[in-house]
Design a protein around this nucleic acid. Structure first.
Lengths: 205, 205
DNA sequence: CCTTAAACCGACCGGCAAGTCGGTTTTGTT
DNA sequence: AACAAAACCGACTTGCCGGTCGGTTTAAGG
């Protein structure tokens, strides 16, 4: 049983460092050795645990990235309050740069999505799955908001969810790694503006 | 003088086909031979006209991509009407799939931007320049809209421009090549919704 | 200890793609 | 026609990187 623990430990080390480096430099621009030398591990160790670079990345998506999306973007939605401010808050937090000693991932779905879009349809579809989960959760929380009278009845919740996701992904491509406070501020302000248009009190045609 | 013409012609052939293939498969996933064999040209021809693959792509950005951004996203803004519907219309058109026999580029800034963001800062900055031009034009047309009474006075035009660009770039990552009518429709609808919030008549706090 | 299997090592292979370069063809000029 | 210069050819070099594989180390159980 200790053997299993060792295996898990090494695999987790590899995945964590892998995500870090892939995110920093891009998947195709990162060689396995880039990751392995940082961990003082060898090709042999790697291929003992993963059957290919692709398989490795899929592990990362399904373990680490899914987790992060849940933690940053989905679980915060689980309250009974007005959904709109909650969504704003979750996005604001997701755009935050590294907090204290934690990993500085921020969020990376858009980078990976674009990188794989025309290169590797299998990985692409795994990433899309993650987005879909987010979308489904957004839609359901918006619909609840409608029932609770926080959101106008005429609103198309699926459309709103799509628009939120699109603007968020787009922001991620505009932001370079040097956290640009100005851009973030503008984005959050306009998101609020947009939300005013779909909130209950305003019922223009 | 004919020599110059021949040179221009070949360079233009290369750039046009280059943009087509780079856009379809991604810059790093396209080898020069992919482009050259389609044109029945050789490495020699290529390196006679361009000093590197990178130099080649910068030419493409500065000639073709800039042109397209102007044609699709900037020139349509040059009217004296209410800017908001004009902007909607330009974005709608820019998301259109290939029209008749014309190149099916649609628009590709986001793909390239993300691809180069962490790989090649020089090309990145050229692409950002293009975005900036778009942004500047959006801002100025929005400000005019404010003066003309189409847009509420309290609106932050720079923020609106950023938000428009972000949501547009994000949409481009959500859309796969098979044109997804549903997504496009949702996007345009929500953009209109957002614009209602910044239009003059509605002056909530 | 001894055995055995999992974990790990690292030299090597094979394929790909950017860039080079000596040579050939095309084109324009006199 | 003769010549030069521009345009073009394509085999070759070079370096990178994913993946392989035979061998070595580590560690748990008997």
């Amino acid at each position: 049983m200790q053997a299993t623990l060792k295996k898990r430990e090494t695999m987790h080390l590899l995945c964590a460092k892998g995500l870090e480096v892939f995110h920093a430099k891009g998947y195709y621009n990162t060689s396995l050795d880039d990751i392995l030398t940082e961990l003082s591990l060898s090709k042999g160790a790697f291929y003992h645990h993963f059957k290919s670079k692709e398989d490795f990345f899929i592990s990362i998506v399904q373990n680490l990235i899914v987790q992060k999306v849940y933690a940053l973007l989905i679980e915060p939605l689980n309250t009974q309050e007005n959904p709109l401010p909650i969504i704003v808050e979750s996005l604001e937090k997701a755009l935050e740069p590294s907090k204290s000693n934690e990993m500085a991932y921020g969020f990376m779905l858009n980078d990976f999505l674009t990188e794989f879009n025309k290169r590797n349809s299998e990985i692409s579809s795994y990433l899309r799955d993650v987005l879909n989960v987010w979308e489904v959760n957004l839609v359901s929380v918006l619909k609840r908001g409608k029932l609770d009278g926080h959101i106008a009845r005429h609103v198309d919740c699926e459309g709103v969810a799509t628009y939120i996701i699109a603007s968020y992904l787009g922001m991620r491509s505009l932001l370079t790694d040097d956290s640009n406070r100005q851009l973030k501020y503008q984005y959050i302000q306009q998101l609020k503006q947009y939300f005013r248009a779909i909130a209950e009190p305003i019922s223009v045609i």
